[in-house]
Design a protein around this nucleic acid. Structure first.
Length: 264
DNA sequence: ATTGCTTCCTGAGCGC
DNA sequence: TGCGCTCAGGAAGCAA
């Protein structure tokens, strides 16, 4: 599932492969994949590629922007063979040099929004701090956890609190912080909040360095897997490094992995 | 204001 | 071999 490190890896790949290219057309292969929020005559060249939370932002010379969310199984694969097709291709961004970007998505939850450069992305107004920015610090998180009775796992998954974390990284962050994911946000000690902030930054940076985590679907722009799955300590594991059994429960509709011995 | 449930969707894996 | 079931989960929408 693409979370911040995977999206960041895709952005890095896009900068290498498609920055500067001129978009000839966007072909929607499955209805509902592309959301047109403005009239288009000419798409223009890609002039800037960035990320906000788990959203990818492509800006063009024609004052347009494409907002792409991969959700669970979305991929953006760069393809130099114009005639090549992919099994679950939902849309294609065709460039004038006969290369293309295939938006592949088994579960079809991913979307591409096409809108004006100066138009506000509604979803962005709800997003919390970027975890790798200065804004995401102990003071910020302490304020966000105030009065929140939900389990810390659920709170960290909430994009309004911090933008970019998903199920895998939250599990790893709480493991490294030695905090029980079931623990209510508001009862966390000052030092625990400090640890969450610290380990969030460390885990995300390490994962970015290793091109993200591939459990099943995630691939880079070059259709390669990440490597951070080799460094996971709890997500999907049976045994903890301490020797105890990893426990699996369900929280917020998702699998939570943790070690009862290490995480209090 | 916050919480937690449901919904969207397809393929993999499992038991029989 | 194939059927039916469960599981995987990001975020919106909704009820409480």
């Amino acid at each position: 599932m693409p979370e911040l490190p995977e999206v960041q890896t895709v952005v890095r790949g896009l900068i290498q492969k498609v920055l500067g290219k001129e978009i000839q057309e966007i072909i929607e292969l499955r209805p509902g994949t592309v959301i047109w929020q403005t009239e288009i005559t000419n798409l223009g060249n890609i002039v800037e590629i960035s990320r906000r939370g788990k959203y990818i932002i492509l800006q063009t010379s024609e004052k347009l922007k494409l907002i792409i969310h991969l959700r669970m199984t979305g991929k953006l694969i760069f393809e130099t063979d114009w005639n090549k097709n992919a099994k679950h291709a939902r849309a294609e961004i065709i460039f004038t040099d006969k290369t293309k970007l295939i938006f592949n998505d088994v579960r079809t939850f991913g979307k591409i929004q096409v809108m004006n450069h100066d138009e506000e992305v509604e979803a962005f107004s709800r997003l919390g701090a970027e975890p790798l920015s200065e804004t995401f610090n102990k003071r910020y998180l302490t304020e966000k956890l105030l009065r929140r009775t939900a389990p810390i796992k659920n709170i960290l998954l909430d994009q309004r609190v911090v933008a970019g974390l998903g199920n895998i990284y939250v599990a790893e962050i709480l493991f490294r912080s030695k905090i029980d994911p079931r623990k209510s946000g508001k009862i966390l000690k000052s030092v625990q909040i400090k640890d969450i902030v610290k380990h969030t930054k460390v885990v995300l940076q390490e994962a970015i360095k290793h091109n993200g985590t591939t459990i099943s679907d995630y691939r880079s722009v070059e259709d390669k897997t990440g490597e951070f799955q080799n460094f996971l300590k709890v997500y999907g594991k049976k045994t903890c490094e301490c020797g105890a059994q990893i426990i699996k429960i369900k929280q917020a509709g998702r699998g939570t992995y943790f070690c009862e011995k290490c995480q209090k």
